[in-house]
């Protein structure tokens, strides 16, 4: 799974580093529980500003993109839930 976390100025101001820290912690939870989670690798990439916030008047930061799908006003809980749902074994 490819997770991109924006580290542009707006996103950094509004807490994107916290999202990164939380994803790092989540990696530990996932790696310790092989029964429930697939061994898919979480590729976390810190990216430059994608320009979403500059093309709109709406609040969008922080921006996180999971497998090419952008999440606006991302919170760490929403991001982690999405990751966990994607990586959890189905049965």
């Amino acid at each position: 799974m490819k997770i991109k976390v924006c580290a542009g100025s707006n996103c950094t101001l509004l807490g994107s580093m916290n999202i990164l820290d939380q994803i790092d912690d989540l990696k530990d939870i996932i790696s310790e529980d092989a029964d429930n989670y697939s061994d898919e690798i979480l590729e976390v990439e810190v990216i430059k500003c994608l320009g979403y916030c500059k093309n709109t008047n709406k609040k969008v930061a922080p921006v996180v993109v999971i497998d090419e799908e952008p999440m606006f006003n991302a919170t760490s809980q929403a991001v982690m839930e999405k990751i966990v749902n994607k990586i959890r074994k189905q049965n």
């Binding site: 542009g8 100025s9 101001l13 430059k48 500003c49 500059k54």
Partner: peptide, 14 residues
Amino acid sequence: LMGMFVAKGIELSE
């Protein structure tokens, strides 16, 4: 300071 960067539209990484 970060608030000032945002107000000025400065992207440090660029």
